[in-house]
């Protein structure tokens, strides 16, 4: 079941669209915000609220990379692997992050603190290399800077 808060947040957007299907992504994002990721139960709850078939909503959910259908850590790190960041040292940073966190790309650290995901261009290419943690951009990165940033989240 959707929580009261989830329901309210979804309701607040209803007037933006002429039908409920258009709320699919918004509703999934709201559920994800509250539950960390979108469980099968989350899919079922949203499908019921929007009067969609769960399989249909599942097909939508899996298309978009920012809908997490697997558990993620407390913080999600998006490391830009697109061309400008690649030129400016993406591979070294990836090595550094995977060693520091003890995880590969797409994995979550044992302490459940961080999930490390590669991501397409984050729109700060003049300050490459770039990553995001949760909602914040970090740019002009090097190994030292990454360590300082990670420390802020521990």
């Amino acid at each position: 079941m959707l929580s009261k808060q989830e329901k309210q947040q979804i309701e607040a957007k209803v007037h933006h669209y002429p039908n409920k299907r258009a709320l699919s992504l918004e509703a999934l994002k709201i559920v994800q915000e509250h539950r960390g990721w979108v469980t099968d139960e989350g899919i079922a709850d949203v499908a019921e609220a929007l009067q969609l078939r769960p399989a249909e909503l599942e097909g939508v959910a899996t298309f978009y990379n920012m809908i997490f259908r697997k558990p993620v850590g407390k913080h999600v790190i998006l490391l830009c692997d697109s061309v400008s960041c690649w030129i400016m040292g993406y591979e070294r940073l990836r090595e550094h992050l995977t060693t520091r966190l003890g995880v590969g790309l797409g994995e979550t650290s044992v302490d459940q603190q961080f999930t490390l995901l590669p991501n397409v261009c984050l729109g700060a290419c003049d300050h490459a290399p770039v990553m995001m943690i949760d909602n914040a951009h970090y740019q002009d990165l090097d190994a030292g800077k990454i360590d300082e940033i990670l420390a802020m989240y521990r």
Binding site: R21, S24, V60, F63, Y64, M66, I67
Partner: peptide
């Protein structure tokens, strides 16, 4: 209205964008 998407480069192609905004696969 502001509509915040959920990722994927293809959503920027204008007709894929229409499907994304309608709540479908893009």
């Amino acid at each position: 209205h502001l509509h915040v998407s959920a990722g994927r480069y293809i959503c920027g192609e204008e007709t894929a964008l229409l499907n994304a905004l309608e709540g479908k696969r893009a």
